[in-house]
Design a protein around this nucleic acid. Structure first.
Lengths: 230, 230
DNA sequence: CGGGCGATTGACGGTCATCAAGCTGTGTGG
DNA sequence: CCACACAGCTTGATGACCGTCAATCGCCCG
């Protein structure tokens, strides 16, 4: 089961992931119990309501976490990227669906074996804790975004926030990759696709951003950061 | 420091709190390091930006967790009630302000001593974990509320959600206590106070609820639960 | 070339924010 | 005991913003 190989040894995102605090022998043992999985864009990792059988650590790509309402509306609760940890629940069932937005690479741990492993290593539990708290803080910032502010503020804050997360991962760049669709952005911000499109294009006309295929480039960083406020 | 006395021994909410998994001796030791604090309504527990020095376990009353924006707008991120755990951050500074909405009773633990205590008891760490996950799930449901839906849906969902939380605490009742002000509800749902007031009164005219001093009573539970959807 | 999906653009209307005034209950002081 | 003030809540009129519906565009891929 699992395969350690050199895969883990040269894991690029180890310091950002759950594994960051493990010593070499623990690291290798955990690696042996992990399945390395690759999924194409639009593939689902798990669905809302399914019983949770695994935890995942995201190594590459972007995953969206969302909830579907009975009438078809959709709220995206988070975009996850490399280093993020998925699959925690308090009920044993997934509260949300997780779908790959771009091609992704994951490490998959069976719930049972992960629990057994963690029992012996309290410091790992503490690491998991940090990751959840990080996610909680992010969720709370997202609430501020959703509750307050105009479409423009929401979109600019989203761009700034996403840029900062990308920067932590691979250093600052002036181009912000946006692998998700307009619809995804709309469902993340509680807007419609038309409003997202209009707002982005207005920002471009006003010289704040430049729209590129698969992303945008921030031209007036000052003003943008001012608007993002939060 | 601290005082165990019989306070903990007859703690009503022990099974709901962090302490639920502790054995008798651990329970007594933790109790000795806790300060039992009472605060009047409108008193602040901690402010956004302060360095976090303590954790708190809420025993009675309601606390609001919120963030202030530079221009004075306010987003309430959560209402906390008995059994909830406050004061976790990933940065050492509080990301949000916490203020008592009603008179509250808290157990206060210094960060350092709590950390020392927890180091020896991994099962307690696991309990903390559960509490954070619970809060995360709640945060995510709140996002769905904020992003989707009309003022009416938001308000009805809020009432249903609050009723259910109260029910877990002290059993089902037909009257829902609302210790928070209209302004608080508005800031929680991303609405204005006028919209909250109008919507509640319309719901009353339509026979769905009855407005009481300090709360409401759900008359048409069926229809309300249908509207709440999420 | 044609089909299809995602994004853009336009016209219109509803919902909710805004501004403003009045109401109700509670506490305070004369 | 009443008058007054104040805070929280309610109610009304108006308009902006954004959602809805619909048409068009651009691009990729068969």
């Amino acid at each position: 089961m699992g395969q350690f190989s050199e895969a883990c040894a040269c894991c690029q995102i180890r310091p950002l992931s759950v594994c960051s605090l493990l010593n070499q022998t623990d690291f290798e043992e955990l690696g042996r119990s992990a399945y390395r999985v690759r999924l194409a864009a639009r593939t689902t990792v798990f669905l809302e309501g399914e019983t949770a059988t695994s935890f995942y650590s995201l190594r590459e790509g972007v995953v969206r976490l969302y909830k579907l309402l009975p009438d078809g509306r959709r709220q995206i609760v988070a975009f996850l990227m490399a280093g993020d940890f998925l699959g925690m629940t308090d009920s044993g069932r997934h509260e949300f669906s997780a779908v790959a937005v771009s091609p992704v690479a994951l490490c998959k741990f069976s719930r049972a074996s992960f629990a057994r492993f963690i029992d012996k290593r309290p410091h790992l539990l503490r690491r998991v804790n940090e990751l959840i708290v990080r996610e909680l803080i992010q969720a709370q910032s997202h609430m501020v975004l959703l509750g307050q502010g105009s479409a423009e503020e929401k979109i600019v804050s989203f761009l700034i926030g996403w840029r900062d997360r990308l920067a932590k991962l691979r250093g600052a760049k002036d181009v912000i990759d946006l692998p998700m669709s307009r619809q995804d952005i709309a469902d993340y911000l509680g807007l419609t696709i038309e409003t997202v499109s209009r707002t982005l294009n207005r920002l471009e006309r006003e010289g704040e951003i430049q729209i590129l295929p698969g992303g945008v480039s921030l031209l007036d960083t000052e003003r943008a950061e001012g608007l993002a406020a939060a």
